[in-house]
Write a protein that binds this DNA or RNA. Structure first.
Lengths: 112, 112
DNA sequence: ATTTATACCTAATTTTCTTAGGTATATAAA
DNA sequence: TTTATATACCTAAGAAAATTAGGTATAAAT
């Protein structure tokens, strides 16, 4: 687990990237996928996630589709047309930011 | 200039890295060096910088040396022994975080 | 029967930053 | 010569974004 301050500011970018790849995901699913993909190094908290998802929906970046699974509700989120642009911009900006930080902190980028 | 939320959480790491390389720097100098090295893409605000420097001094990570330059004061900061450990930890953690984000967002790292 | 996992949510607090000032000297431009 | 820019420090109010710590409810595992 990284110190909380490090992960700050990356939440929207992470959400948008994951939702851009699979056409729909629900909140809990997002937390689990991020946990899996990062080996537990990044764990989104629900207190941060849900308000952010609601805000992004209000901004027209995401749309929702509420489904009943057994007796539980599940709220699927997907990226709108506008959201796709935002997603690309966010990811590109973050990519540029990483390059800048690698240079500034004199880090060796790993080979893929 | 990056969106402010992106740069959040990187301030201490940037300060510690720069101060670890030159034995002493003053606040204004740090803002200028970061601006220069990043081509203006990262511009530290004084309202964030000074309180952080003060906090890091209070925590024993930095020490100060106040000098008179003409009729102006200049407050030099340098990294303490404890601070050097923190600096290494912070930079390593950030480096690891970048690797994780590159994987999570499926970014292509640039060649150095 | 109780804990863990799933699945949603909110409210109070804390952390961290921005905004917007204030003080003061030195230099460059108009 | 006055005005703007650069240097150089600082703080306080407010905003933004997260954490912490709850609440509700079903399903599955211990």
């Amino acid at each position: 687990m990284y110190s909380s301050e490090l992960v700050k500011g990356t939440l929207k970018t992470i959400i948008l990237k994951l939702l851009s790849e699979s056409d729909k995901m629900y909140g809990y699913e997002i937390t689990q996928k991020v946990k899996d993909l990062t080996g537990g190094k990044i764990q989104l908290t629900e207190g941060a996630l849900y308000p952010t998802l609601h805000a992004m929906e209000a901004q027209g970046i995401l749309t929702t589709d509420v489904v009943n699974v057994g007796n539980r509700i599940r709220k699927y989120y997907s990226v709108t047309q506008t959201g796709k642009k935002v997603a690309t911009e966010k990811v590109n900006e973050f990519s540029d930011f990483i390059d800048t930080m690698i240079f500034l902190l004199d880090l060796k980028p790993k080979m893929g």
